[in-house]
Amino acid sequence: PAVFYSSAGRVLSPELVEEAQTLFATLLDRSREFLHAPPAPVPSVGEYLRTEIARQLEQWRGDADAKRLTLAVLNTCFKLECCVSGTHSMDLVALGPFGEYTMLPGLDCTFPGGYGGLPDCLLRSLPEGSVMFHKPVWAGSYREGGHEGRPFPVQVECEDGERFLADHVVVTVPPIGFLKEHHETFLHPPLPPRKADAVRRLGFGTNNKIFLEFEQPFWPADCQLIEAVWEDESPLAEAETDLQAGWFRKLVVFVVLQPPERRHVLCGFLAGKESEYMETLSDAEVLTVLTDVIRRLTGDPPLAPPKKVLRSQWHSAPYTRGSYSYVAVGSSGDDIDALAQPLPEDAADPRPLQVLFAGEATHRTFYSTTHGALLSGWREADRLLGLYDPSESHQHKPRL
């Protein structure tokens, strides 16, 4: 169950909202049909969607107010899809490869206690002390280094000066966000041109969560989703560019966290440049702005403000610089495969698989997802297992 509040302080008709959402979903499905077709008619998903909406607008029935509200709901759909794709605008997402992304069947899984439950579970199977925290890596180099009477092809240098020698290194920093800024200095020698070009071409955006806790809920008891519709906006009109004046307009969806017995919490999603701007504000500033927004949407000026705000700040984090990847205009799934290719690239090199790459941006069909990140790690582990045949004896056990 969902409630759609508009900027005029009213609840929109479920029928009108459903009609607009159905149209958007239909057009979005069609935008995935250009994967194996002739060249896409336009470069981006956003341009395709707007073209189709404008074409169908002439056939719409109803009065001018209904058409205006329908366009406003469609604009909300655009913003929500930006959160899904992790981009500032759907105009940045390539149309041709868009259909390559695959939806994993089944429901979303929420880890008890948050994402920390996943690594905590994995760590229980590892020897104590085998994982180091708060140990930033300054650079990695794949070159011969002698130690313990034999050479090691890889050396990892940490910011505190400590160095580690290894047979193989798996790089799992966000391959796009971090490497876009540091790929020329983080690895020595630098990434080969094909891989560096893939880093530059692929897209990487920010999608933050903002949690608001209320003393009492203002939403209906059965409500699970709240969406905001700004009646003066349309996907066919120029978007707001003044981040300071309108960053909050990109925050269009709130999920009602369950169960609500003890706390009444909304989780909002905010993507793009607006999300990055939000990170520059203080908690108090965010709370003040969103209090005004919610009062306007509900048409309830004296509505009690949230008592607490909690938010992610993925763009500001130095080792992420954003949230997750997308296939940008000018790139393709081939760039994802290039990014996932181990180093050295020469298959005839006597010391193969010195540097391997994992992370959501290295999975061609599940990029931007947790399961894509997990599967990419399994892929690289299998790659190493295939290198060391357990039926043969080896003089040393590889350091991973």
Rank of each mutant, 00 (worst) to 15 (best):
D29H: 14
P39Q: 13
E15H: 04
K67I: 03
L57V: 02
A66P: 01
K67F: 00
P38S: 10
L57D: 06
E15L: 04
A66W: 11
Y48L: 07
F24M: 06
L57Q: 11
L49G: 05
V17M: 07
L28D: 11
V45Y: 05
T51P: 00
S44A: 14
T22H: 03
F34D: 00
V42R: 11
A54C: 06
R61D: 03
L57W: 02
I53F: 01
R55M: 08
W60M: 13
V45R: 01
L16R: 13
I53C: 01
E19D: 15
F24G: 00
R50W: 08
A66V: 10
S31M: 01
A25W: 01
E33I: 01
Y48D: 01
V17A: 07
S31N: 04
L27S: 07
L27Y: 11
L28C: 03
P39N: 10
H36M: 03
Q56G: 14
L16M: 14
E47D: 12
H36Q: 11
F34P: 00
D29G: 08
L16K: 07
D65T: 13
T26F: 15
A37Q: 13
Q21E: 15
F34R: 02
A40Y: 09
R68H: 12
D29I: 04
P43A: 05
E58C: 08
A40C: 02
R30V: 02
R30F: 09
G46A: 11
T26C: 09
A37N: 08
F24Y: 15
L16G: 06
F34S: 00
P39R: 15
L49C: 11
G62T: 13
V45I: 12
A54L: 14
